[in-house]
Write a protein that binds this DNA or RNA. Structure first.
Lengths: 263, 263
DNA sequence: CTTGACATTGACGTTACGTCATAGCTTATC
DNA sequence: GATAAGCTATGACGTAACGTCAATGTCAAG
């Protein structure tokens, strides 16, 4: 079989990019056409398709084009360490953005807080006395991380607190509806992943804090009441399911670390 | 009292930006000088300082400059919803990066699993190429700031470098001697303020860079060795203490910025 | 009056293309 | 064979927020 060839537009559509992109890649030497006609028309072949797919893969990972070029052109390129370095950069950026988000939150609170200051203190679940008790326990249990979470939580306006609680409520309801599937079921675990993401709305929980939350849900009177109202048996179920969820997370993390150590 | 005025360079240094930035802000109408001489020299006043601080605050939150302009120029701008919208954008980006990180992880696992130990890597020691790559990576991780710091550091004379290092050593020794007081203790935090000043000898560290240094002290083999030699447990202690120090700094900063917004 | 430190205005470079503008080539149709 | 539709090509400018020269003017000090 003779090799199939593609025009710029054909290859572009095949790969989901624009012809302009292909011309750009040609110019910077990232993807040269297989052949060029007298009339300067570019033609690509199957090998081009493969190379383009590789390019797009690394591009999606967030590599700059000249890094991609280096990766693909140098036969003994140390890809693994390049990926690890890249991962660190991504993580640093992500951390930075987390802080930005928190700062934005604090700013919103400051602006909104001026209007609803008196209202804020009325919020029932967390009046000042109770809140201090919670703080003490939280500090004893999980250290400063939890304290920060409570501080941040208190910095939210009542509406925001309610919105976040409502969002969380939907997750808990979903879990309650699927209790019969068992705490380790994929459905429940998926809901817990949502729950985990949800928590990140206002702080970044460590493994220990997650587990501590699971325990608290089952042991603390207020939480027990809340969750039992949704469905009897939910507190204990949540504790089990969360524990399993964190176990899986931690295992995953450990494997990653071990993988890195192999290098 | 007549108002104090600033030249471009003075204001730039005061605010921690370059004169080029001020000229850019002038051109795009974001920050006009209070007055302009016959010779086209720009002059800024106290009001300019305040406005610039506001600009830099929103810029740090990740707003684009024309958004900042809109925020500051329109008296009845709905800042709260702008912030909320912005928050969502930040969160979306952050989610995207989380997925990227996971993909990178999966890729690394795939590659490592495929190659395992049979590859040549175990035999490569620390040749010169790798060492240079290492430094490059460090620079990439902390961006241009680190590059500038290296440039500045290299501009010092040998004696100056040694004096600065010795000064740093004294600080670390003091900290090591007071470890029992705990990483959050006023004494330790005061030492870290010295450490911070000390760093400014050769570059101006951002919050993230400070935190990154703390992490590096605890994670990088070379630093670990250095600090462990001073006192066992010092690396982790430093990391904790520095994190707390920067948290306090950041809180302080945020409160200052919010105060500015009120006016 | 010269030097050095400051100021000014262009203008190009950065990243990965998008978006014209202008013009040539190919193919189908009339 | 003429024409129009559709594809191709090569510039060249625009993007965001400045960095980095380059060429040149200004000011204070020695």
């Amino acid at each position: 079989m003779d090799a199939k060839t593609y025009t710029v537009k054909q290859l572009a559509q095949l790969a989901g990019v624009t012809p302009r992109t292909l011309r750009h890649y040609d110019r910077i030497g990232l993807l040269k056409p297989a052949s060029v006609d007298e009339n300067s028309y570019r033609h690509y072949d199957e090998h081009s398709v493969l190379r383009l797919q590789q390019i797009l893969f690394f591009r999606e990972l967030g590599f700059e084009l000249d890094r991609v070029k280096a990766i693909l052109d140098q036969p003994n390129f140390d890809l693994v360490s390049a990926l690890q370095t890249h991962r660190h950069r991504l993580q640093a950026k992500q951390l930075h953005m987390q802080r930005l988000i928190r700062t934005v939150d604090a700013t919103i609170m400051h602006l909104v807080g001026e209007v609803t200051m008196s209202e804020k203190k009325m919020f029932e679940g967390f009046d000042e006395e109770k809140q201090q008790e919670y703080e003490k326990q939280a500090i004893e249990n999980w250290g400063d991380g939890a304290k920060d979470s409570i501080k941040l939580w208190n910095s939210y306006s009542r509406e925001q607190q309610e919105r976040i609680l409502a969002e969380g409520g939907k997750i808990y309801q979903t879990i309650a509806d699927q209790m019969k599937l068992g705490p380790h079921s994929p459905e429940i675990q998926a809901s817990l992943a949502q729950w985990h993401e949800h928590l990140r709305n206002f702080y970044e929980p460590t493994f220990d804090i997650l587990r501590g939350l699971g325990d608290t849900y089952n042991e603390h009177v207020d939480f027990r009441a809340t969750f039992t109202a949704i469905r009897p048996g939910l507190p204990a179920f949540l504790q089990q399911a969360i524990n399993h969820y964190v176990d899986m997370l931690e295992t995953e993390w450990l494997e990653r670390e071990l993988g890195i150590l192999k290098e």
